[in-house]
Amino acid sequence: MSDLETLSAAVPAALAGQRLDQVLAQLFPDYSRARLQQWIKAGQVQVDGKQLRPKDRLLGGEQVAVQATAAREVTWQAQPLPLNIVYEDEHILVIDKPAGLVVHPASGNPDGTLVNALLNHAPELDAVPRAGIVHRLDKETSGLLVVARTLKSQKHLVDMLQARVMKRQYQAVICGVMPSGGTVEAPIGRHPVDRKRMAVVANGKPAVTHYRVIRRFRAHSHIRVDLDTGRTHQIRVHMAHIRHPLVGDPVYGQRLRIPPDSSEQMMATLRRFRRQALHAARLGLEHPASGEPLEWQAPLPDDMVRLLEVLQQDADEHA
């Protein structure tokens, strides 16, 4: 356990009759309801010197004291792995993740992940749920993600995500020539047959994806994508749903189609691109402590730059 701080407050009369956990959530909004309930059950909350249950109701006027401590949340090991840190202070980290790096340890990837590297760089993350990861990127998706270094920062960033005010902009290369931009609004959930995949399903969670064309090629398009929601595999699923799957997507892609009269270089480039051509290019948020609006950009990785160069060369040769 590591001490954070002692929180104290008087219960205002306006909250009389509410449950202890409800009162704490309003008195200390920097912490999640689940975290506050955990502290109550662990005996770290006293009301007029007494321990109560989360469901016990207050009369108003009581003095509440919370010993706000953070238990070790993760059992993953720290590993000295390279990290491309774009921004860092005592509240958050912003990372430019390379393609091929798994975010969280799991059965197939017990170590060598972004989390292992983060724990080595910032050991205090072992006291933050999910080692501070607020939003994920798929293994083969590159680009920016933010990590919370404290419970308060995590709560603030999660609230921003839920309120849809965190700006996340991606770039992607898709199959097919898009005539213009648009919006996909289609619910996403588990595939009814293949449970490892996601799909557009009637009973899925709401998902909204906006896309705009940056460049068109003979049989592909370079697009910018903005998310209103953050469902698992959202961009990949939505683009496949409108029949423009991402180049190289091994799960939601289509059979490789090479434009007629393509050069050897063009054919080789498309065949060798074995990951979804997706990059988290811009990230914007309100700093959890200062409230200052911040934004970062990450340049396209070399493999996507090369892919776009070859597609443009092909388009020029057939103009």
Rank of each mutant, 00 (worst) to 15 (best):
D261Y: 11
P299T: 11
N116E: 05
H238S: 12
L20M: 04
V128H: 04
R243L: 04
G204H: 07
V251R: 05
H135M: 07
A13V: 14
P123W: 15
P293Q: 12
D89L: 05
A199Q: 08
V177D: 05
E5H: 07
I174D: 01
K55A: 14
R33E: 08
Q44R: 15
E90D: 14
D126R: 14
L36R: 01
Q171T: 10
N203D: 15
P250R: 10
F273R: 02
R306D: 11
I242K: 07
A99Y: 04
C175Q: 13
S107C: 00
R195K: 14
E185C: 06
E309M: 10
M304K: 08
H135T: 03
L270M: 09
H244K: 12
I235P: 01
A68L: 15
H241N: 10
A9D: 01
N203Y: 09
A277W: 04
P206A: 14
M166D: 01
P123R: 15
M166C: 05
D314H: 15
D89P: 06
V165W: 03
H287L: 12
L59Q: 14
V47C: 12
D303H: 07
V201H: 03
L58Y: 05
D126W: 04
R255K: 14
R164N: 14
V45M: 04
L278W: 02
D89Q: 03
L7Q: 09
D138K: 08
Y211G: 05
P110Q: 06
A68M: 13
G253E: 04
L278R: 05
Q77C: 03
G291D: 10
Q276S: 10
H244I: 09
R164Q: 14
W39D: 06
D316R: 10
Q154K: 13
A319K: 08
E264T: 12
V177H: 10
D56Y: 02
R216T: 10
A186D: 01
N120P: 00
E90C: 06
P123Q: 15
V310K: 02
M178C: 13
A315E: 13
D48P: 02
K139L: 03
H244R: 10
A127H: 15
V23L: 06
S153F: 01
R231G: 01
Q265E: 15
V247A: 04
D302G: 09
I174S: 06
P245Q: 05
D249P: 06
D138A: 11
Q79L: 07
P187C: 13
V66H: 00
C175T: 14
D228S: 13
L307Q: 08
V47G: 03
Q297H: 14
G112Q: 11
P80T: 07
V102G: 06
R197G: 07
